Amino acid sequence: MSAAGEFEFRILASPVAASDQAVVASAMRLPPEEKQLAIGGKVVAKWVGGLKDGNGPPNLLVHRQAANAFETLVLIDSHDVTGVYFTSVERGPGQSPAHPGLRIELNAKGSRLLGKLTAANLPTATGERHALALILDDSILAAPTIMAAISNTAIIEGLPEEEVDSLISIMNAGALPLPVCEAPQP
């Protein structure tokens, strides 16, 4: 028996944010087979599957080539916002009809946690920005730049229509445990 992968929201480590510099420097020294960075016995960052073709928000990515995989560094926080807090995932308003938004609704606890996570990572007066990575099974699906605190509803814009539809299907299935059973033999 197995379960579907779990979604999580994490902050991308920033190569320019002063607050991330020590973590980034330590993570860059990890050998490719090591995926998690612990400092003082606490996991503070991990390497996950990178964004498609290594693309992502400009100046907001810390990445490495590990074996045959492109990896991106994400920070581990105490908020631990995962797909268990999703109440619905659907199309939402976007930049244009060809680029609809991905609308994610969260329950009360998830709203509180996501609100704290995004409020702590708003753009600074000096222009530093962070991106919020939407991760499935340690691979980043999307990583929009955080422009405002997000609580009960997250809308991710800038994705192609077919990617929005695909993410909706995956996310609506992914938060539920899906047992894998052998088919009966005739």
Results as ranks from 00 to 15, higher is better:
residue 97 P to C: 13
residue 140 I to W: 03
residue 43 V to M: 00
residue 17 A to H: 06
residue 101 G to Q: 06
residue 11 I to E: 11
residue 182 E to L: 13
residue 69 A to N: 13
residue 2 S to M: 15
residue 45 A to R: 05
residue 20 D to S: 03
residue 6 E to F: 10
residue 165 D to M: 07
residue 70 F to D: 03
residue 16 V to S: 10
residue 133 A to V: 11
residue 20 D to T: 05
residue 70 F to Q: 02
residue 98 A to R: 14
residue 108 A to I: 00
residue 186 P to R: 08
residue 71 E to H: 05
residue 54 G to W: 03
residue 56 G to H: 04
residue 185 Q to T: 12
residue 25 A to C: 02
residue 64 R to I: 05
residue 44 V to G: 08
residue 180 V to S: 12
residue 27 A to W: 02
residue 106 L to W: 03
residue 158 G to Y: 04
residue 174 G to T: 00
residue 102 L to P: 02
residue 181 C to E: 15
residue 105 E to D: 10
residue 153 T to S: 06
residue 182 E to C: 09
residue 136 L to E: 12
residue 150 I to D: 00
residue 97 P to A: 14
residue 174 G to H: 01
residue 121 N to I: 04
residue 128 E to N: 12
residue 92 G to I: 13
residue 30 L to I: 00
residue 49 G to K: 01
residue 121 N to L: 01
residue 26 S to L: 05
residue 106 L to V: 01
residue 96 S to D: 15
residue 84 V to T: 13
residue 111 S to D: 06
residue 39 I to E: 02
residue 37 L to Q: 00
residue 129 R to H: 10
residue 4 A to L: 15
residue 68 N to W: 02
residue 26 S to D: 06
residue 172 N to T: 08
residue 121 N to T: 03
residue 177 P to A: 04
residue 96 S to A: 15
residue 87 T to Q: 10
residue 27 A to F: 00
residue 161 E to T: 12
residue 14 S to R: 03
residue 54 G to V: 00
residue 93 P to S: 13
residue 66 A to S: 11
residue 36 Q to A: 08
residue 69 A to Q: 15
residue 128 E to I: 14
residue 78 S to R: 05
residue 132 L to V: 11
residue 77 D to C: 02
residue 126 T to C: 00
residue 158 G to E: 07
residue 138 D to E: 12
residue 136 L to D: 12
residue 77 D to V: 02
residue 104 I to K: 02
residue 30 L to T: 01
residue 186 P to C: 03
residue 75 L to D: 11
residue 11 I to G: 12
residue 176 L to E: 11
residue 3 A to Y: 11
residue 74 V to R: 05
residue 177 P to E: 07
residue 132 L to P: 08
residue 39 I to S: 06
residue 18 A to V: 09
residue 108 A to Y: 00
residue 35 K to W: 00
residue 4 A to I: 14
residue 185 Q to A: 07
residue 10 R to A: 14
residue 121 N to P: 04
residue 98 A to I: 09
residue 73 L to Y: 04
residue 18 A to L: 10
residue 74 V to Q: 06
residue 177 P to L: 07
residue 95 Q to V: 15
residue 105 E to L: 09
residue 25 A to L: 04
residue 54 G to M: 00
residue 162 E to H: 15
residue 56 G to V: 03
residue 2 S to R: 15
residue 60 L to K: 07
residue 147 M to H: 03
residue 79 H to A: 09
residue 167 L to V: 08
residue 78 S to N: 07
residue 171 M to L: 15
residue 180 V to A: 12
residue 33 E to P: 07
residue 121 N to H: 12
residue 101 G to I: 06
residue 60 L to S: 09
residue 54 G to S: 01
residue 52 K to Q: 02
residue 148 A to E: 14
residue 183 A to G: 09
residue 177 P to N: 05
residue 54 G to K: 01
residue 72 T to G: 01
residue 94 G to C: 06
residue 48 V to E: 00
residue 31 P to I: 06
residue 144 P to F: 10
residue 101 G to Y: 04
residue 118 T to N: 01
residue 84 V to Y: 12
residue 169 S to Q: 15
residue 26 S to N: 04
